[in-house]
């Protein structure tokens, strides 16, 4: 199996099926993760991830080798997701299954508890803010990459991420999450 990305791409371009399978295995995680964070729906994300990988594999010859590969691939994923979002814009909004009641046992599983609180807070944040925030903090994309993926200016991305942070922090604060968390840390 080709070891470097360049040789993997070369092998895919000549139709090497082992290389193609390796390509899919290598990039399915980041692509699916991105799609899931943009779409917030597992099955739609899987569909778009499949479509992204197929499109990327079919247009590998158009990848500019002087530029990093992953942003190019993620930009394709962003395009696919945006197309899907544009078509489903009038669908009912996603609703979180997370309860409005705070978990009374934060120290049982602090990480899980915090994740649930973040999910709940995120469900109340505007969609654009939520996407930008998750792409930056959870997917670790740069502001430039997020701008490419969401097709908006860098300044806008920054504003969205900052606003999302403020809203989430204020929700965590108002729900007393921080105090409980600190107490849990102190107890351990």
């Amino acid at each position: 199996m080709p070891s470097t990305l360049q040789s993997l791409v070369d092998a895919c371009l000549v139709g090497d099926s082992t290389a193609t399978a390796a390509f899919v295995a290598r990039f399915r995680g980041p692509v699916f993760g991105l799609c899931y964070r943009i779409l917030g729906h597992r099955e739609d994300a899987e569909d778009m991830a499949q479509e992204t990988l197929v499109r990327a594999l079919r247009s590998l010859d158009r990848w500019d080798r002087d530029r990093p590969f992953e942003p190019w691939l993620l930009a394709i994923a962003g395009n696919r997701c945006r197309t899907l979002l544009a078509r489903r814009y009038h669908r009912p909004k996603m609703q979180s299954d997370v309860s409005e009641l705070a978990d009374p046992r934060p120290d049982v599983n602090a990480a899980k508890f915090l994740a649930e609180e973040i999910e709940l807070a995120l469900s109340k944040v505007r969609e654009e803010y939520r996407r930008a925030f998750l792409l930056f903090h959870e997917r670790h994309l740069s502001y430039e990459q997020i701008g490419q993926v969401l097709d908006c200016p860098l300044g806008t991305v920054k504003t969205w991420v900052h606003r999302a942070r403020k809203e989430i922090v204020s929700q965590l604060h108002s729900r007393g999450v921080v105090h409980e968390q600190r107490d849990a840390v102190r107890r351990t």
Partner: peptide, 20 residues
């Protein structure tokens, strides 16, 4: 306030993506 921001960062790291 600092603790709130830190909790936010910790919480994001604990988020999970479903299995493919």
């Amino acid at each position: 306030r600092v603790a709130s921001f830190q909790a936010m960062l910790d919480g994001v790291q604990a988020l999970s993506v479903p299995e493919l």
